[in-house]
Design a protein around this nucleic acid. Structure first.
Length: 154
DNA sequence: GCCAACGTTGGC
DNA sequence: GCCAACGTTGGC
């Protein structure tokens, strides 16, 4: 089983929206590297949900892949701002898995705290200028973040 | 709102 | 295939 982290802007789609929807197709990712990660997701993989452009930014919850990546319908929707004229039904460019809400963490883990955490050294999210919206996370890092959430903030 | 760090596009 | 110009992301 693999583990991942996906970013979302809470103003657009927050962990609470996911909690309400229970399951959502993770659409609108338009970056090839991120797309490749989405396509590599398998049913049962666990996914950390991260709020970007938030105050503060940080990891807020856990979801689970419940359906492998399928063509992202927003690429075919002319009215969508994510419409892609170069994508066809025969050769879709963008894919989205379905994610199922698992739980919110007992507390959010701010980016700041992750930066100061030795156990999270090497986490791709913390690399300088990391802008990827879908990131593979080692199981070790995944567990370290979940454990942090069960401890009180420093 | 600023801007650094990337990614993408397109002319050559 | 290079690379300048432009667009986007996302922390601050």
């Amino acid at each position: 089983m693999a583990t991942w982290l996906v970013k979302t802007e809470p103003d657009v789609y927050s962990i609470d929206d996911l909690a309400r929807d229970k399951v959502t197709d993770w659409t609108c990712v338009r970056n090839y590297q991120a797309r490749n990660s989405l396509k590599a997701m398998a049913v049962g993989d666990e996914v950390l949900i991260y709020h970007s452009n938030a105050e503060p930014p940080g990891v807020v919850g856990v979801a689970k892949v419940c359906k492998e990546a399928a063509p992202d319908p927003t690429q075919f929707d002319k009215k969508s701002e994510y419409f892609d004229a170069k994508a066809t039904q025969d050769a879709p460019r963008w894919f989205c898995p379905d994610l199922k809400f698992v739980r919110k963490l007992p507390r959010m883990i701010p980016l700041d705290e992750m930066k100061g955490c030795k156990a999270l050294d090497g986490l791709a999210l913390l690399q300088r200028g990391s802008r990827l919206s879908v990131i593979p996370v080692s199981e070790k890092h995944f567990n370290a973040i979940v454990e942090l959430a069960s401890k009180a903030a420093r």
